[in-house]
Simulated assay, not measured.
Amino acid sequence: MNRSKMYITTAANNPIWGAMYFGLLNFPVESPDSYALACADVGGPPCVPNPFEQPECATDDPATQTGMSYQPHRMYTMGPLPGGGADVGLVNRMKVNLVAFGSIPAVATLTMRTPVVDGEVTPLSVHIWQSTPGGRASSCDPSFEPAPSALVEGQVDIYLSDLSIDGVPVELGPNCRTERPSDLFLWGDFASGAYTAGGGGPLGSYEGLHPGSIVPLTSPVYQGAFDGRQIPASAGIDVAPFVDCGSESDDLSAVLTAMASGPNNPVAVTQGALVSSDGTVPFGDLAKCDPISGNCPLPGPAAPAMPPLPNGEVP
């Protein structure tokens, strides 16, 4: 069955931390005459054709296509270290409940990290498409108003440790992990509330949340962020099979795969507002409140409601 194998909930006192580089594009972008100009005021975010919906009358003529402002950002996940400082790349570490051999209760520590590539921690990329006042309307249907879209994408490696099955500890070894990273495509859940990179809001990855792109994303404004990819419709996260679990004499990888791996696992996330408005990140003390805005990172946002399971399944 296509069933979610784990129900992971992070409490408000155990949030996912992150440092965001806000607004990566410099305007104008190198040669603005060869790109679409700013959607609204001069100096604003550049325009791209809306890649997710267009009026029925739109053609290859850019004038018939609705333009959206495009804003890219970058986020590095991290976690506070016990003695101070930040563990960059850590997404979260928590206890999870599993089921072994179909019916036996099990508990393990699940750790998620963004991959390290060529010695560098990979970030999550935040993309926002939004209509702006004075933006580029379609010449064939000026009344057409597309909905905003937001996408947080990246990859995570998943590790399991400290397993106990029916109360009995089971040795998994130091590197029990998925054989490949899981792809994240977290879409802004605008039906549940607004989402902005700075203000946060609801995000999710499950069937029916977002239709994906209707065309490959090729505008030079993307600066290689998509390289002509067509973004698929929202679906749950696939958790790959596990490898290197147990010992040479007792390989438990297949058992862990049966317990925790599977396709189309739904995800719901609530991002909090940015804390440091003075342009700095307090890496030595991630819980430090922002002296300008008064915002504090703790407690984090409340856990969102459980997203719908695929194929109409019930918990």
Rank of each mutant, 00 (worst) to 15 (best):
Val126Ile: 15
Leu124Val: 13
Ala137Met: 12
Met78Val: 10
Tyr159Thr: 13
Ile104Trp: 04
Ser103Gly: 03
Leu81Phe: 09
Cys140Leu: 13
Val42Trp: 07
Cys140Met: 14
Cys140Gln: 05
Pro49Gly: 02
Glu153Met: 09
Pro46Gln: 11
Gly84Lys: 02
Tyr76Ser: 02
Cys57Met: 09
Ser125Leu: 10
Thr59Glu: 04
Cys47His: 00
Thr64Pro: 01
Ala63Leu: 14
Gly43Trp: 06
Glu153Phe: 08
Gly43Met: 05
Arg136Phe: 07
Met75Tyr: 01
Met112Phe: 08
Asn92Cys: 11
Gly84Arg: 04
Glu145Trp: 06
Asn92Ala: 13
Arg93Met: 14
Gly134Met: 11
Cys57Ala: 10
Arg74Tyr: 04
Cys57His: 10
Phe144Arg: 00
Gly79Glu: 09
Thr64Gly: 04
Leu124Gln: 06
Pro82Lys: 03
Val42Met: 05
Cys47Phe: 00
Pro146Ser: 12
Ser103Gln: 05
Glu120Ala: 12
Gln71Lys: 13
Ser138Asn: 10
Gly102Thr: 11
Val96Met: 06
Val126Lys: 00
Pro123Tyr: 11
Gly89Cys: 05
Asp141Thr: 11
Asp60Trp: 03
Gln65Trp: 08
Gln65Ser: 04
Gly134Ile: 14
Val116Cys: 03
Val99Met: 03
Pro133Arg: 02
Gly79Asp: 06
Cys140Tyr: 08
Pro115Ile: 08
Pro46Trp: 03
Val117Ile: 15
Ile104Tyr: 08
Asn50Lys: 01
Pro55Tyr: 08
Pro80Gln: 11
Met94Arg: 14
Thr109Val: 13
Asn97Met: 13
Pro72Tyr: 02
Asp61Asn: 12
Thr111Gly: 04
Pro80Tyr: 12
Ser131Val: 14
Thr59Ser: 04
Gln54Asp: 04
Arg136Gly: 00
Ile104Asp: 03
Pro72Arg: 04
Asn97Pro: 01
Pro142Lys: 08
Gly135Lys: 00
Leu81Met: 14
Arg136Ser: 01
Met68Asn: 02
Tyr76Thr: 10
Gly89Trp: 04
Pro46Ile: 07
Arg113Thr: 14
Pro49Trp: 03
Pro133Ala: 03
Met94Ser: 10
Asn97Tyr: 09
Ser149Glu: 09
Cys47Glu: 01
Cys140Thr: 11
Gln155Lys: 11
Thr111Val: 15
Ser143Cys: 08
